[in-house]
């Protein structure tokens, strides 16, 4: 049974064959395999959405715990990674909403990014890699949340445009259109952080 669970947790398989209720243990349940396969992606998404390593660690912990609790409810309609992303996005959105309600955070007007002049298709050159993570975080923080989520999801090569569209609640055409603007906005903001 552990083998079934570990197989189901892989990205290629979309069937939900696991029955964790009967298992419960980390290795026996196969949840170790789930963690190993997806922890980096979930932590990275949480880190770049929340912008704080401690908050991201807490969020990743909570996401995997929620996933464990919802095992029996997972129907296997989507890949496990997509399912985990959905839990992570909702979790991070809830955290951000409670923060913004407290701190009245606001991003720049979307119209500013619509007018961004940078060419999104030109390569991004980075001379100093030492603080690249901080530059990326600063750039993402400057973008509208919708663009931030979109870029982070599309950057995961395992997700199709259709899956990104499902996760963000829009059509694939809308994803493509917004993605172009998001890339341009990122390139513009990134250039200012150099």
């Amino acid at each position: 049974m552990a083998v079934h669970l570990a197989t189901a947790m892989g990205d290629s398989t979309q069937q939900g064959l696991f029955e964790p209720a009967a298992l419960g243990q980390w290795e026996e349940s196969g949840f170790a395999a789930v963690y190993a396969a997806h922890a980096r992606a979930i932590y990275y998404l949480a880190l770049r959405l929340l912008g704080d390593p401690t908050q991201a660690e807490d969020a990743t912990h909570d996401v995997f715990l929620k996933a464990y609790r919802k095992f029996s409810g997972f129907r296997g309609d989507s890949a496990v990674r997509t399912w985990l992303y959905r839990i992570a996005i909702n979790h991070c959105r809830n955290l951000q909403q409670s923060w913004s309600a407290r701190h009245l955070l606001s991003n720049a007007d979307d119209a500013v990014w619509e007018r961004a002049a940078s060419t999104a298709d030109s390569p991004l050159r980075v001379l100093e890699t030492k603080e690249l993570g901080q530059r990326i975080q600063k750039t993402l923080d400057a973008l509208p949340p919708e663009y931030r989520e979109l870029l982070l999801l599309v950057a995961d090569e395992r997700l199709s445009y259709q899956e990104v569209a499902d996760l963000t609640g829009q059509s694939t055409d809308a994803v493509r259109g917004k993605l172009h603007r998001a890339r341009r906005a990122f390139a513009t903001a990134f250039a200012t952080t150099a």
Binding site: Y44, L124, R125, T129, I136, V154, R183, F186, A187, F190
Partner: peptide, 15 residues
């Protein structure tokens, strides 16, 4: 330094 074909490549590297 490093050169990335696009934003997604940069983010993948960062990940």
């Amino acid at each position: 330094g490093l050169e990335f074909a696009g934003v997604e490549d940069l983010l993948r590297h960062d990940r």
